[in-house]
């Protein structure tokens, strides 16, 4: 295929990605250097039957003009990145200087919105991903061993939690764990504590979100591993049996090494998807105890009167940097392999 033919086929796709993925990233980088215009105040006098009182109000006309002249806001350099709702460099310095011990430093840093979101996002990513792989693998091995007429229905129902919209799936669970819902009532009965509520404590909210994450993604790992199991060479399995390997040893020394590349694939997909966790926080109304980076951006943009574009953009840039750090090992490995082949 010549360069010209290649371009003829791929240009619409490249154009779409350039315009709506690459340019927005540049636009985000640009916006992150600006903040909203300061309110232009105007003093007016309101006169009533009891005399005149001076009033200070926002000058709407002047504001509109300023916004039209420079829609991105006024230049702020990198200050948005270091302010208290992002990296909070001043606050951190102060916390480190005035805190007594490590526990206090940790608690006070957890109160800064960006770090609170970052810590939850990372915990979610690195707790849910391995659990998904382990559960998916166990389900796949077990389903592979049951009678084959059961396999079809099992796969059908297993796909449901994964295919269903994250917001919808989390709402379904949220209503069930409500203290008036069936699971909530069952847990109260189980622990003999009629006031037990999964929504009340931050720890329980985190656990709920982790459980949701595993429930939502385990089917994906299950399907991938199950398909992989169908291709495990049977002569290797048989020769291991001849050598006296029991069931567990077969899994440990034949199946697991064979499925390792698939596990890497699932891990990569899960790291990418879990890092952008967002909808479950809305579905579970969990924002009081758990926020993620994506959720911070969303609330900045949802700010009632004027969206905080600068603040959202700065968080976005930090998130993008996070994604790239997460992907670096994969990128290096791919580049090495490609060079070896070339």
């Amino acid at each position: 295929m010549t360069h010209k033919e290649f371009m003829a086929f791929i240009w619409p796709s490249l154009l779409a990605m350039a315009l709506f993925i690459a340019v927005p990233i540049i636009s985000v980088a640009y916006q992150s250097m600006f903040v909203e215009h300061e309110q232009i105040m105007i003093e007016t006098e309101t006169c009533g039957p009891f005399g005149c009182t001076p009033e200070v109000a926002v000058d709407q006309d002047a504001m509109r003009k300023v916004r039209e002249d420079s829609p991105a806001g006024r230049f702020n350099g990198l200050d948005t990145y270091t302010n208290s709702s992002h990296l909070a460099t001043d606050e951190i310095t102060e916390i480190v200087a005035t805190s007594e011990n490590f526990g206090e430093i940790r608690d006070r840093i957890m109160n800064l919105p960006f770090y609170k979101a970052l810590i939850f996002t990372l915990s979610y990513t690195f707790i849910v991903t391995p659990l998904v792989i382990v559960f998916g693998f166990i389900i796949a091995v077990v389903v592979n061993s049951i009678p084959s007429f059961l396999k079809g229905p099992v796969i059908f129902f297993s796909l449901l939690p994964m295919i269903v919209t994250p917001l919808v799936g989390s709402l379904v669970l949220f209503w069930m764990i409500d203290s008036r819902g069936v699971v909530g009532a069952f847990l109260q009965y189980l622990f003999a504590d009629p006031s037990l509520s999964l929504k009340a404590s931050p720890t329980l909210t985190w656990v709920t979100l982790f459980v949701y994450g595993v429930w939502h993604s385990a089917p994906f790992a299950f399907v991938v591993f199950y398909a992989g199991l169908q291709t495990v060479p049977s002569d290797t399995l048989e020769s291991s049996m001849v050598d006296g390997a029991n069931r567990w040893e077969q899994i440990r020394f034949v199946v697991m090494p064979y499925l390792l590349p698939l596990a890497t694939f699932v891990a990569l997909m899960q790291l990418m998807d879990n890092f952008r966790i967002f909808e479950p926080i809305i579905g579970f109304s969990a924002s009081a105890s758990a926020t993620s980076l994506s959720y911070l951006i969303y609330t900045d943009l949802r700010e009632a009167e004027t969206p905080l574009f600068g603040s959202a953009a700065a968080t976005s840039m930090l998130t993008i940097i996070g994604v790239i750090i997460l992907l670096l090992p994969v990128l290096f490995r791919n580049a090495r392999e490609f060079n070896r082949k070339a």
Binding site: V23, P24, I25, I26, V28, Q31, Y298, L301, S316
Partner: peptide
């Protein structure tokens, strides 16, 4: 891998 909301904040 880009979280969609970061792109939206660019749009």
């Amino acid at each position: 891998a880009m979280p969609h909301v970061t792109l939206v904040s660019g749009y």
